[in-house]
Design a protein around this nucleic acid. Structure first.
Length: 280
DNA sequence: AATGAACCCAACCGCTTCTCC
DNA sequence: TGGAGAAGCGGTTGGGTTCAT
């Protein structure tokens, strides 16, 4: 009997990662770390889709049929702000295998990754280490700050191996350094996001959606998402897990947050909420 | 400009190693 | 101590891009 697969292959997306998936993974790890368990991460690193804030009376007046039509899926409703407004959220996990998330983070999204051409010094180091220990890419990569084993392996297979074959590789300087300047390692996460919490105040207005942030740390991309959305009835936008967690925190929902993301049912449902919060 | 070949690299696969109970 | 599950690792592949004709 073979070993059990690490994930349900029929229900995970494969192939290149989209910017949205990258953002979801990056944001989750930035806010929570990977939690020591990559397998469980995709479910937690999803996003609330959509998040709508509108006047409670509007939702109240809709039939269930109209609600389904409006929201697409049976909505989870969280009443907030003295019953004046409602959040309607549905949670969707990241549809990726945990292993794939790990690889994407380690090989591409990690803020300390160095993107760009290899320097002559790095090439020399690879040659030297390869001669000593062979294709132990993770060991070689550990000696090259910002480089991953995959990077080193690809670089060897596509460039350096060829030089060896052609007899051009040496430590004597016969190799001409690329004219392309080495890109410096820039953090992928804006420094403004580095603050541990983000709070915001939402100011709804009929027919003229306004957004007001009480905290400058709300990053530009999030604000862009807010403005990109919008609906005739209120607000409609997408937030990643970290943002919605912060948003709910700022609205006095601290107690609800652990119940939201600690739900291990694997179905992306919200967990039990305290009695002070009404929901459907 | 079109097309096929070569190149590059992100992502996957599956085996090995590690960790925890 | 052994088994199960998760992480680590290296080999391989597939598809997009660049180059040569």
């Amino acid at each position: 009997m073979g070993r059990a697969p690490c994930c349900d292959k029929a229900n995970v997306k494969r192939g290149p990662w989209s910017p949205e998936e990258d953002a979801a993974l990056r944001s989750y790890i930035h806010n929570h770390g990977f939690g020591g368990n990559w397998i469980a991460l995709p479910q937690k690193a999803g996003k609330f889709l959509p998040l709508t804030l509108f006047f409670s009376s509007f939702f109240h007046d809709l039939s269930m049929e109209q609600r389904l039509l409006f929201f697409g899926t049976p909505p989870t409703r969280v009443n907030a702000c003295e019953h004046l407004f409602d959040f309607v959220v549905s949670y969707e996990g990241l549809k990726r295998c945990g292993k794939s998330c790990r690889l994407r983070w380690l090989n591409y999204l990690r803020p300390d990754i160095k993107h760009g051409s290899f320097t002559k010094e790095e090439d020399d180091m690879i040659f030297t280490l390869y001669n000593k220990i062979g294709s132990r890419w993770s060991v070689i990569a550990s000696k090259l700050p910002g480089r991953t084993d995959n990077d080193v392996k690809n670089h060897w297979n596509t460039k350096l191996k060829k030089r060896v074959m052609e007899g051009k590789a040496s430590h004597s300087g016969s190799y001409h350094r690329s004219s392309i300047p080495l890109l410096s390692a820039q953090p992928l996460i804006p420094s403004a996001q580095a603050s541990s919490s983000t709070s915001c105040v939402l100011t709804p207005a009929i027919g003229n959606q306004e957004f007001q942030s009480s905290d400058e740390s709300l990053d530009a991309s999030l604000q862009q998402e807010v403005y990109r959305g919008g609906s005739e009835y209120g607000f409609l936008w997408e937030l990643d897990f970290g943002s919605i967690t912060d948003l709910l925190s700022s609205s006095g929902f601290d107690d609800t947050i652990p119940s939201i993301w600690a739900d291990d049912s694997g179905e992306g449902k919200l967990g039990e909420l305290p009695q002070s919060v009404s929901y459907y």
